[in-house]
Design a protein around this nucleic acid. Sequence first.
DNA 1: AGGTGACTGCAACATGGTTGCATTTTTATA
DNA 2: TATAAAAATGCAACCATGTTGCAGTCACCT
Lengths: 138, 138
Amino acid sequence: MDDRMEELLKRSQLSVTSSRKKILELFLGSAGALSHGDIEKKAGEKFDRVTVYRTLQAFLEKGVIHSIPTADNTVRYALCKEDCHQGHHQDNHIHFFCRVCASTTCLDKVSIPDIDLPAGFTASQVEVVVSGICDLCR
Amino acid sequence: MDDRMEELLKRSQLSVTSSRKKILELFLGSAGALSHGDIEKKAGEKFDRVTVYRTLQAFLEKGVIHSIPTADNTVRYALCKEDCHQGHHQDNHIHFFCRVCASTTCLDKVSIPDIDLPAGFTASQVEVVVSGICDLCR
DNA sequence: AGGTGACTGCAACATGGTTGCATTTTTATA
DNA sequence: TATAAAAATGCAACCATGTTGCAGTCACCT
């Protein structure tokens, strides 16, 4: 477990520190996506707010996590799959936000449908966020 | 023009005040969606920040505008169409965010495709935000 | 083991958003 | 039209969230 996290950090060209291991551990141990606030709470006051921000920033840049915009306007983060590379995310899946438990899940199985844009518009990214009730809350 | 705004406010059960007329005017005169910050800038320091917040809140509740989550994590607002009613929005269209001019547009013509959710999930709302380059910037 | 560069924590700051309350403006009613 | 009640505004203060600079610490490489 510890090895796995160290390996993931090294592969992403990030130096191995205790805060990064801890935050990575939180992501690995959580089903859905985490917000900055979630991480601060779960980490148990062990790290400075700034460290959490900078760690998330580093993870984002190196392609370890990706950010998810949600309806309640708080950014959440989730682990990327193996095919995410530095700076070039492959998060071609939709996100589900549960109104009951406020959790955000990546629905890897559901792909994003094609969308016909009007003439003159060019799409480089499509974000789909579905809100509703998740399988655990019904 | 002035009549049109007063009528819209009255129809939405909102009392007619100068700030509401001014903010409504900004929406009518702008092509895309506006963020809180946009409004404060365009209004020319005439209104208190709090008033802008409360006005947007009131407009939201009465179905005059709807909110749009964007990739850069700032909420934007756009006028609702006629078929939006109090508390029950009919904003069943996708939103386009231009990376160049940072404008957000409602693409009324493009409807949201159906999405097959995994078993156990129930969808109540689907948000689609396409990022790319708009027709004016290419 | 030791030097260099990267990471951390602290303080201070900036921004975005909310709440309570006194004052002003709208609206409804007479 | 005058007036009372209701609603909206502005102000101050506050909280949450996010950023920056810098000094100290830690990880990495040789």
